[in-house]
Structure formats: C-alpha cells, structure tokens
Amino acid sequence: MDVFMKGLSKAKEGVVAAAEKTKQGVAEAAGKTKEGVLYVGSKTKEGVVHGVATVAEKTKEQVTNVGGAVVTGVTAVAQKTVEGAGSIAAATGFVKKDQLGKNEEGAPQEGILEDMPVDPDNEAYEMPSEEGYQDYEPEA
C-alpha cells in the first residue's frame, strides 16, 4: 500500500510541476504579447503594419512553449490582441483601416495563427491545408 501511495504522490508532483510550467509559459506569452502591443503603439504610420505582424510573430513563438489545451486559448487571445492593436492603430490615425491585415508588401496577414497546427491532446499534428499553395516548377 505504501508503494501505491508513494507512486500516487510522485504522479501528483509531476502534474503540479507540469501545471506550473504551463502557467509560466502562458505568463511569458502574455508578456511578449504586451511587449508587441507597446511596440505597435510606438510606431509611426509606416511601421504600424509591420508592428502588428511582430506582435503576432512574438506571440506565436511563445505559444510553442505552452502545451496542451492552453495553446488553443493563448492563440485565440493573441489573435484578438493583434486585431485590437490594429483597431487602436486605425482609431489613433497611425494607419488607414484599409491597410490593416496586410503586410508591407500588401499581402493579407489573416491566418497567421489560424494555420498553425495545434492539437490540445498532444496526440497528432496535421499540416495546414494546401489550398493556398501553388506547385513550383523550376525553369529549365
């Protein structure tokens, strides 16, 4: 019985440690998101679009440190934060509304985080759909 109880105690310690790591990862992701939003706020009209992409990228980098179902929630929060940063930029006159959601080359930025393969159960990952990809044929 002692062996059984000791095993359960060790398992509990492992769960607590994993929860603490997840909590730490979420806190880091939130900190990076805040950094990115402050970065966007300090940019001029020309830099705002690039700044919004930076927020998304920093958040995406930190999301990889967070495991399990938390990833889905962090990704949703990050996307809403990026959308909010863009709205703030438009409201303050840093950028025109028609410039939001495009990178410096004018290509749409939507789907940055949505296409990231995420499995809350950590069982399997699927690649994003290939609808947006084109076949590449090298020139002879």
Results as ranks from 00 to 15, higher is better:
42 S>D: 09
119 D>K: 02
100 L>A: 10
44 T>Y: 14
13 E>F: 14
42 S>Y: 05
71 V>R: 08
3 V>S: 08
19 A>C: 03
98 D>W: 13
139 E>P: 13
8 L>E: 02
3 V>N: 06
36 G>I: 01
77 V>F: 11
37 V>F: 07
36 G>M: 13
12 K>Q: 04
3 V>L: 10
106 G>M: 06
65 N>V: 14
9 S>C: 09
37 V>A: 14
139 E>K: 11
46 E>V: 02
21 K>S: 10
110 E>G: 03
126 E>N: 15
69 A>V: 08
80 K>A: 04
128 P>G: 09
70 V>M: 14
118 V>P: 13
131 E>K: 10
26 V>A: 05
36 G>T: 07
95 V>W: 13
13 E>L: 05
32 K>N: 14
40 V>Q: 03
35 E>P: 02
66 V>W: 09
24 Q>D: 03
126 E>M: 10
29 A>R: 15
115 D>N: 15
140 A>P: 12
20 E>K: 08
5 M>S: 10
79 Q>M: 10
50 H>V: 04
14 G>K: 11
118 V>L: 14
57 E>P: 01
11 A>C: 10
92 T>A: 08
63 V>R: 02
15 V>L: 13
137 E>N: 12
111 G>V: 03
45 K>D: 00
3 V>T: 01
79 Q>S: 04
30 A>I: 13
109 Q>T: 03
58 K>P: 01
130 E>M: 10
61 E>V: 07
122 N>C: 11
33 T>V: 06
110 E>F: 03
37 V>E: 00
46 E>N: 14
118 V>M: 07
28 E>V: 14
2 D>H: 15
94 F>T: 08
42 S>T: 14
84 G>H: 09
57 E>T: 08
44 T>E: 00
96 K>H: 02
82 V>I: 07
126 E>Q: 01
38 L>M: 15
72 T>N: 07
34 K>R: 12
26 V>C: 11
129 S>F: 05
85 A>Y: 06
121 D>W: 14
101 G>K: 11
108 P>I: 10
94 F>K: 15
129 S>N: 07
131 E>F: 08
91 A>T: 13
123 E>N: 14
140 A>V: 11
76 A>I: 13
68 G>I: 07
73 G>Y: 05
73 G>L: 14
134 Q>G: 11
129 S>D: 10
3 V>C: 06
140 A>T: 07
81 T>Y: 11
42 S>F: 08
31 G>Q: 07
133 Y>R: 03
32 K>C: 08
13 E>N: 10
44 T>S: 09
7 G>V: 12
111 G>M: 11
31 G>C: 04
118 V>H: 07
132 G>I: 14
10 K>F: 06
14 G>W: 05
47 G>Q: 07
139 E>S: 13
77 V>N: 01
107 A>S: 08
26 V>Y: 15
56 A>P: 00
6 K>Y: 02
118 V>R: 14
35 E>I: 14
50 H>L: 03
83 E>N: 11
136 Y>A: 04
101 G>A: 10
11 A>F: 15
14 G>C: 09
74 V>F: 07
120 P>I: 15
22 T>D: 02
120 P>K: 11
43 K>A: 11
5 M>C: 00
97 K>H: 09
126 E>A: 13
110 E>D: 12
61 E>C: 06
87 S>R: 04
32 K>H: 01
91 A>I: 12
8 L>Q: 00
135 D>I: 07
17 A>M: 03
